[in-house]
Design a protein around this nucleic acid. Sequence first.
DNA 1: ACTGTAGCGGAGGGCCCCCTCCGTTTTATA
DNA 2: TATAAAACGGAGGGGGCCCTCCGCTACAGT
Lengths: 181, 181
Amino acid sequence: MSNPSSEAPRLRADAARNRERLIEAAKEVFGEAGATASLEAVARQAGVGIGTLYRHFESREALVGAVYQREIDRLVEAAERGSPDGPRAAIRAWLHLFVDYIAAKKVLVSAMSQAPSSLEAIMGAVKVLLDRAIEAGEVRADLRPEDLMHALAGLAYAHDRAGWRESALRLIDVFVAGLAP
Amino acid sequence: MSNPSSEAPRLRADAARNRERLIEAAKEVFGEAGATASLEAVARQAGVGIGTLYRHFESREALVGAVYQREIDRLVEAAERGSPDGPRAAIRAWLHLFVDYIAAKKVLVSAMSQAPSSLEAIMGAVKVLLDRAIEAGEVRADLRPEDLMHALAGLAYAHDRAGWRESALRLIDVFVAGLAP
DNA sequence: ACTGTAGCGGAGGGCCCCCTCCGTTTTATA
DNA sequence: TATAAAACGGAGGGGGCCCTCCGCTACAGT
């Protein structure tokens, strides 16, 4: 979280390379088979021994976390940035962004359900959006961040069915329309 | 689907008993560990050999189907029954019913995603509800049954978190409010 | 170039799962 | 009660996965 390159004694060149390869491989493998895919498959895909994987990432969760940290950071930033068209529009825009993230990297969802820290980060983003919108009187006041999270999860669930993306965007419209107080 | 007790040559008493036990055990085990739980665990729980399980249910899907057939039938019937307060109210009521089903038997969801036939049955129910509501002009016409299914999946997803049920009911209200044309 | 050491790989033990096969037990019927 | 047929159960072959451990490799600093 602070300066990352001065935190540990610095990695040897081959170690750094392998670490990067593992993350890249995990992105692919998890993207195809979900976040419960075999770690040995990840190591194979990275062209690296299983021992190397375990040296770099203590647990499956650590690996999942490394893969999605960047994406999650971006989502959080987008939520904080807001929208010029007001808080409810910001929610809509953010949900659209979320859909695109899911469409691209299929596993954000399982990352969310497997790595509690990721979940918290996204929850924080959602809270920001919702608080602003409620404060502005644009959204009914009985909603809680978890509600939106659940809606999100719904968007993400079954994201591999054909036509999912269009369906998700329609759902968002319905949902945002229903948000009015 | 037709008279079931005359379909096959009739089961021997012990066979019928074990079949029942297996379904009961599957209900418990799947309820606890999800529909991917080990079939051997189901057999153990039923106090029955693994061979017996496989003789009665050709595949995991067949077992899942047997477990949830009745619940799914009821959901389908409820959708066809409708509501005296109009088609949109019927959707709302049906979603509430769905929530209760999920709250009680935790695995309906995974049943849906694992057994295509269950999915189709529920899809049919949703279509009935939606068609009526659109025809009556109570719901925007661009919605498709899959959209509602996705919303459903969302309701079901993460159904084990604390406070899930209240959150789901709030979401339904938001959603139904947004359904207006 | 030399050498200490960080880092590598993958064999191997332990565990669980799937599914088949067949000797044994239970049931239904004559 | 005797017997054919149905049903049972669980051992066992095959496979995958998790994770540890340690002899070997290749990098970095002198």
